[in-house]
Nucleic acid binder design. Structure first.
Length: 148
DNA sequence: TAGGCCATCTGGTCCT
DNA sequence: AGGACCAGATGGCCTA
């Protein structure tokens, strides 16, 4: 834990020595009140910062849940999560652009069946397909995180 | 034990 | 003025 520098910095500047309207006698009291207020503000700021970072971590956890984690038994680090999310989005973008290229529904279904998901295409096409094709995700997202 | 990852504190800056 | 955001510093925990 970082050593607390609150007391060193709290009285920096001339605040503590400033007279108030009631005169010199209360200078010490006002100074200590200022110190107390400054300490309270600092503690409040620390609490806000903790909440903010917890919110950020919650967002990272949600992102981890939707990002592929092939064969990773260990939780992705924040950096790895961002890298994986980026790669994932790019992979999905590629899929969408392929879909646009095969603009008709029939073309897209044929392309889809040929490349990714042959077994479920029987429902659409009635075609007989090989049963040992790759799982959808395995074929589709067999990428390594790219570094940018 | 060194290195990686993380939580927390802190001061600075910007915005409302 | 006060809150949000950011980056640096520091110490704890875990793993190879």
């Amino acid at each position: 834990m970082k050593p607390c520098k609150l007391n060193n910095n709290m009285d920096s500047g001339s605040e503590a020595g400033v007279q108030c309207r009631t005169g010199n006698l209360c200078a010490a009291k006002c100074g200590s009140e200022r110190l107390e207020n400054a300490a309270k503000r600092r503690l409040a700021a620390n609490a806000r910062e903790r909440r903010r970072m917890q919110g950020l971590n919650t967002a990272f956890d949600r992102l981890r849940k939707v990002v592929p984690q092939w064969g990773q038994d260990k939780k992705l680090s924040k950096y790895e999560t961002l890298q994986m999310a980026l790669s994932y989005i790019m992979a999905l973008t590629r899929i969408l652009s392929e879909a646009e290229r095969y603009s008709t529904e029939k073309d897209w279904i044929n392309f889809h069946c040929d490349h990714f998901h042959q077994e479920t295409c029987q429902a659409y096409t009635g075609q007989k397909v090989a049963t040992d094709c790759d799982p959808y995700g395995q074929r589709l997202f067999s990428f390594q995180p790219e570094h940018y």
